[in-house]
Simulated assay, not measured.
Amino acid sequence: MDPDRIAVATACLHAAHDGSLGFPEIVGRLAAAGFEGYLVDYRDESQTYYLDGGDSVVLDMPSSAGAIPAAFDAARIGTLVRWAQAGGSDYSYQRFCEKAKAAGCAGYLVSFPGRRVVYFGRTAETHVEHFPDESGVPPKPS
């Protein structure tokens, strides 16, 4: 992968963790650079960024506290996503990661063309969140 795209992915990773960019801005920057999505893996603390041609880059992400229990709490993940979307003063991506792990989330896959995020547990249970439209309203699941 070319260095410019790696730099965009790296900047977005750091911006998520330092709070300087939110999810919509990060998606926009990555998509503009030609990425089609990314995978967050809490088990090995990495993020993999994918181009549509199959090329990818794996970056280490900052550690987040806590173990990942075997039970996956999809309802709790949904609640955490609403908390993140609300953008309150108590929100940080680091806290989101810690709370998601505590809810049994082993990671999540973000698809720009699919306009969704698939959260998954250690036993491959899933919870799907669709990207909100321009008004901020997520579409009804199909």
Rank of each mutant, 00 (worst) to 15 (best):
Y119H: 14
H127S: 07
R82C: 13
G107D: 01
H14I: 15
S46H: 08
A15S: 11
P132W: 01
D2H: 06
V40N: 06
I68D: 00
L59R: 03
V81S: 08
V8R: 04
E98H: 02
G34I: 04
G28E: 03
G34M: 04
V57H: 11
T79A: 15
D60E: 15
G22M: 11
A86Q: 13
S46V: 13
H130V: 12
H17S: 12
A103D: 01
Q94K: 11
Y38S: 12
G54F: 04
D4K: 06
A100S: 15
T79P: 09
M61F: 09
A100E: 01
Y91R: 05
H17F: 14
C12I: 02
L21G: 13
A106V: 00
A7M: 06
A67F: 06
E25D: 11
A71F: 02
E125R: 07
R122W: 00
R82I: 14
V57N: 10
K140R: 14
Y119T: 06
A86M: 15
T10S: 15
V40P: 03
C12T: 02
M61Q: 10
F72A: 00
G66I: 00
M61D: 03
R116C: 14
Q94C: 12
G114E: 02
Q47K: 13
Y108R: 04
E36F: 02
D4A: 15
P3T: 09
L13K: 07
A7L: 08
I68S: 00
C97P: 02
G54V: 06
P132D: 03
L13G: 14
S142K: 11
V27G: 08
G114L: 07
P62E: 04
W83V: 13
V81I: 10
K99P: 09
Y93E: 09
C97M: 05
V27D: 10
L13Q: 07
Y38M: 09
F35S: 08
A84H: 03
K99L: 15
Q94G: 13
R29K: 11
Q94A: 15
V8E: 05
D73F: 03
P3I: 08
L80H: 09
Q94Y: 06
R82N: 09
E98P: 01
G121T: 00
E25P: 13
A16I: 08
